[in-house]
Design a protein around this nucleic acid. Structure first.
Lengths: 229, 229
DNA sequence: TAGATTGTTAATCGATTAACAATC
DNA sequence: TAGATTGTTAATCGATTAACAATC
């Protein structure tokens, strides 16, 4: 049964999934003269990571390297692209054409990273009918029908928090299978739908805490712990 | 030496740090009539998490609960705010007043989440001198002096990729201690500077992979693995 | 050949989960 | 009191790191 456990693709560690794009970025910046190679040791040194960790991550893509030599640089780039699905762009819709939505429509290279936004949707009559970075803004009411007709699987939410859940429901009604949520709101989705929250307030929490730790702030907690011991 | 290991604040698990804001969001949406309480079991059920995990996370904040009752709701909110530093906004500067930078300046509640952006900086003469969502745009050249003069510790980068490293260097020269990098570029910083990358292409990798896995795409990898066994 | 790197198996480490006593 | 929940210690699980044989 060993082979089958290896074929189960959903046990790929999330941490590996988040490191592979970092390797990709570094590789892109490297010398790509034909025939050049790169080793895990090499990559690990640049990023300050453990070489074995880098090797295991890269192994996930399925590429086979050559001892003493490493991996052909352009091959490795292609294996990562293929593993992550970056060379198979999924059609997507964007809900919310405010300043964040507009910024997302300005990301030109999403198409090279697995996603192509076909249309944007908004409730604001002044925005409907306009184009933002080349993408047309449609009335929000048409979203479910559009999604169903074009068999779109990926939805991006950049609406105000109050609208997020309703928009998610509409997307799911239309057949969306994965939601990338930028709205600062907790939304619930059925188990068959993948939800990834990109809430910046969440990210800021981590950064704020680390900065205070580094600065030696965080007064309350120390006091408590000292009292307890 | 046990007490001291507990006082080391940088061994707080990153995972806990990312879950606490989620609890906060849920708590905010709950009934906040004075005197209302919430239990870990309660929170865990809403989020589909293990109750013990929620309890350990909440314990990190230092709050002490009451058996059978739980935690007073408003108290818990305050303990989380205080633990994350959300009630002590850190001054920040933004580099890059393009569409993403403008979107970030539109996040009104950053100030309630540990960060206050005092000024934006850009190289575009057409933007300099204008205000975006109330924040003034200054010439990029003045950034280091501004940061030094106002003793700003936090820098947000929303420039094009090509400019990111130079901007980071300028920020660090001015005394910045933490960088929130939205530019799709790998930047290097000295060890005393905290770097948090918010690269959307990285996030998209994870989502793209999961969606393909769910759909049963991912052809190449399966083939390889079957051959090997 | 020698040496560096891959591929793989074993050991370690830390986070999650389970168990249970203390408490209101 | 009884029962639910906290606080804490132990067990499990998975990811990271170390060790080492295979290979070019």
């Amino acid at each position: 049964m060993k082979p089958f456990t290896h074929l189960r693709q959903f046990d790929i560690p999330e941490a590996s999934l988040r490191r592979l794009p970092i390797y990709y970025r570094i590789l892109q910046e490297m010398d790509s003269t034909p025939g050049s190679h790169v080793s895990c040791t090499n990559l690990a040194k640049v990023l300050g990571l453990d070489p074995t960790q880098v090797r295991k991550d890269i192994e996930l893509t399925g590429i086979v390297g050559k001892p003493k030599v490493g991996y052909p640089l352009t091959d490795l780039l292609h294996w990562i692209e293929d593993f992550l699905g970056w060379n198979r762009p999924k059609h997507a819709v964007l809900a919310g054409a405010g300043s964040l939505g507009a910024a997302l429509l300005g990301y030109e290279r999403f198409r090279n990273h697995g996603m192509e936004i076909l249309a944007a949707f908004d409730t604001d009559a002044k925005k409907i009918g306009t184009r933002i970075h080349g993408t047309k803004v449609e009335p929000m009411l048409l979203l479910p029908a559009y999604v169903r007709r074009k068999q779109i699987l990926l939805g991006v939410i950049a609406t105000p928090a109050a609208a997020a859940q309703a928009v998610a429901d509409q997307m799911i009604a239309g057949g969306i299978r994965a939601i990338w949520n930028f709205a600062p709101a907790h939304i619930t989705v059925p188990p068959q739908v993948i939800l990834q929250n990109e809430d910046l307030y969440y990210s800021l929490a981590s950064l704020s805490f680390k900065l205070e730790t580094r600065l030696g702030v965080q007064p309350v907690r120390e006091r408590i712990l000292i009292c307890k011991k």
